[in-house]
Amino acid sequence: MGLFKRNPFGHILFLKKWLIRIFGVITHRRFRGFNELQIEGSEIIKDLPGTNVLFVSNHQTYFADVVAMFHVFNASLSGRTDSIKNIGYIWDPKLNIYYIAAKETMKAGLLPKILAYMGSISIERTWRSEGKDVNRQVKMSDISSIGKALDDGWVITFPQGTTTPFKPIRKGTAHIIKRYKPIVVPIVIDGFRRSFDKKGLFIKKKNIFQSFEIKEPLEIDYENDTHADIVEKIEYAIEQHSSFLKVVSQKDLAALEELNKKREW
């Protein structure tokens, strides 16, 4: 690799590699130490093509979710199955992993700006800005940036656009899938909201059961599936469809509480 070789977004790959290495080492104990990340399905990762893959996931913190994905993806590519044991995998990270994030979030301080350099595709949210509800048009330059990232590698998106559970899937994700026809891989995470603060920068509680499930790619008919069809498939795949909500009895609640206690390491 040339010392000043850049990716399509102008980021110097040598610098990006060292940032991923440093942050990988710093954050590793958050998922294997203070807490123990339980991974399922990571064998899927190593069989994916190098480009035009879109990961869709539910969202629990601003940054910890993405950091965990960088760990799991790179560990899997280096031959580890459902494990991030031995941080050595981060020495040669995959440099064409990107994630979609709100522009205002990635500009809020030095640390987010550094994290943005590591792979953010920063876009303007069409429904919310500076804590207020808005209604504005999608910027075509944002869509083009996502397409550029898919052409170059893998893209992570949180299609609800919020860390609040069971919010609707944004239709923009379906538009991207129809337009660029990526392989769509669902991920379901849990425990991050209890482990970290909302931004995912600070550990809120230790010994929390964290789960990370990678599912088989979605079967999508890019030509005939409607945007609504694709949205519904994503809702079910990342377990954010309204059918996953149910009234829990006191007996079931007590049993769930007991299970959560057993899950604490």
Rank of each mutant, 00 (worst) to 15 (best):
I44L: 09
S145N: 09
A116T: 11
Y117G: 10
M69F: 15
E124F: 15
T81F: 01
K46D: 06
K103R: 15
V138G: 04
V53C: 13
I123R: 02
W91I: 14
D65N: 07
R128D: 08
P93I: 05
Y98C: 06
A108R: 14
T81N: 12
N135M: 07
N86V: 12
V134Q: 03
V138K: 09
K94N: 00
S144F: 13
N58I: 02
G109Y: 03
A75I: 03
F63D: 08
N96C: 07
G109R: 04
D142M: 08
A64M: 04
P49V: 01
K103L: 15
R128F: 03
P112E: 10
T126M: 04
A64F: 06
A75Y: 05
I123Y: 06
L48E: 08
Y98L: 07
G119I: 05
M140K: 13
E124P: 07
R136F: 01
L77I: 11
V134R: 02
R125Y: 09
D47F: 02
I143E: 11
K85L: 09
S145Q: 04
G79K: 11
L48P: 01
D133C: 01
A149C: 02
K139D: 15
E124W: 14
L95H: 07
G131Q: 12
I121H: 07
E124T: 15
A102K: 15
D65L: 06
G79T: 13
L111S: 04
K132E: 13
G88V: 00
S57T: 13
T61D: 08
V56D: 01
A75V: 02
L110G: 03
E104M: 00
F70E: 12
K139C: 10
N74A: 10
K103Q: 15
S57Q: 11
D142C: 09
K46P: 00
S129A: 10
A68V: 01
I123S: 08
H71L: 06
N58Q: 01
E130W: 10
Y98V: 05
G147L: 05
Q60I: 13
K103E: 15
M106P: 00
I44S: 01
V53T: 09
L77C: 10
K85D: 12
I146T: 03
N96E: 09
T126R: 12
P49D: 02
V66Q: 04
L95K: 04
L111D: 05
V72L: 12
D47Q: 12
R128Y: 08
L54A: 05
G109L: 08
R125L: 10
G119L: 07
K94C: 00
Q60A: 14
T81E: 14
A75C: 05
G88F: 08
D47T: 09
N52Q: 05
I146D: 00
A101R: 01
S145W: 01
I90N: 09
I121K: 11
F63W: 14
K113R: 07
L54F: 10
L115I: 14
G88T: 05
S120M: 01
N135T: 04
D47K: 13
S141G: 06
G131I: 13
G88K: 13
V134M: 03
M118L: 13
